[in-house]
Design a protein around this nucleic acid. Structure first.
Lengths: 205, 205
DNA sequence: GAATATATGGAACAACGTTCCGTTTAACAA
DNA sequence: TTGTTAAACGGAACGTTGTTCCATATATTC
């Protein structure tokens, strides 16, 4: 039943075990490549040429392919890290803000993450099996993060109960990938609308 | 205000005017190319190589590019024709069937059209300006077609009033582009559900 | 049937993802 | 420190893509 398409199976930090018996230059190059890929993707979209990423990282394409045998492996790893960062931000925001404030800030964080990824949606729906595991990872990490924020805001009586995190995530993802005919602040407006709608008693007169 | 990205402006058949002063072999090759493209797209998806289409049509790539200066021009023309055919089917179905039956059959026709186009969704959301005009053409041709079917079914008292054709079209398009984790008959099931829900008094007990 | 504008085919180009392999270098034992 | 060696490196080279170019072929017209 293992289709081999799971995202690098890192429950916690067991990839640092893999990294331990890597040569020092290899570890450094992997880090440089991921940083370069992140920069290039946000500048030129996920369709950016492999050579551009290698150049930005200051390594040859051979080195890139040694660590990421396929272009999609690099994309997946970058997204995995960004998803993790986005999920982790929930805890931090929750500590530093009032419940609803934390929720609102995290939603905007999520919007920024999705919106910055030009071409990600296209890649996900391309039918390429290399990306099949990404949506599952999205949900696995992001749903609990959002769930925690929702629970806290519900307990504080700031938003209403029964909101389904998966639906919110999907809705935001759709709204952040706007059609070409709508304005740029469309997403912001819809987000404000959604957040207002979530407030307790929003339906009352 | 003309952004030059409109779909070939064919109100009626004014492209046959263009075709008139084309050489006979050119006309024949254009037809062969469109037929070949249609066949290849449905067999290998819209990402199929240009050379494969040229070979299927029995012409050189030079000939293909003479008539369709960009790959996307060929794609757009194929879809324009299929959209037209789908819209025209509404009138035929309306004549040969009872109102609700015609509506149901047309919806399934639309589902088949969308589902057969592997990679179309990705192309539409790719951000490539070459495809920007397609959604508008979708709506322009398909909305009136569906509107007519809805009106007739409403007048016959078979479905309820107030259904918005744009929403139905968008919903069906989304449902026909299923995520990889759902089964193949997902779309059929959802379509049946929607059609049942449209029936007059579907909400009653 | 010649003259000519038009259309054709496929070699050639640039850019892409990916592979290959001669060279370099980090790691470790002596 | 030095020598040995497995690991990692860089970038030329390959195959496939979209697109361009132009010498050749062929409808069309008179």
């Amino acid at each position: 039943m293992d289709d081999g398409s799971e995202i690098t199976n890192t429950s916690g930090d067991d990839d640092s075990a893999d990294r331990k018996h890597l040569r020092a230059d290899a570890r450094r190059n992997i880090d440089d490549l991921l940083a370069a890929a992140m920069a290039v993707f946000s500048k030129s979209g996920v369709d950016a040429p492999v050579r551009e990423i290698a150049k930005e990282a200051g390594v040859g394409v051979g080195t890139l392919y040694r660590h990421f045998p396929q272009r999609s492996d690099l994309i997946k790893e970058v997204f995995r890290r960004e998803i993790d960062a986005c999920a982790d931000a929930a805890a931090t925001l929750s500590q530093d803000n009032a419940p609803f404030e934390a929720l609102a800030k995290w939603m905007n964080r999520y919007v920024a993450f999705i919106a910055a990824k030009r071409g990600l949606g296209a890649a996900l729906h391309s039918g390429d099996p290399a990306y099949e595991a990404l949506p599952a990872y999205f949900e696995k990490k992001l749903r609990p993060a959002l769930q925690g924020l929702l629970d806290r805001a519900v307990e504080a009586g700031e938003i209403r109960d029964g909101l389904r995190p998966n639906e919110l995530l999907r809705a935001v993802a759709s709204l952040s990938n706007p059609a070409p005919d709508v304005g740029t602040d469309f997403t912001d407006n819809m987000m404000r609308l959604m957040l207002d709608g979530m407030r307790r008693g929003a339906g009352d007169k």
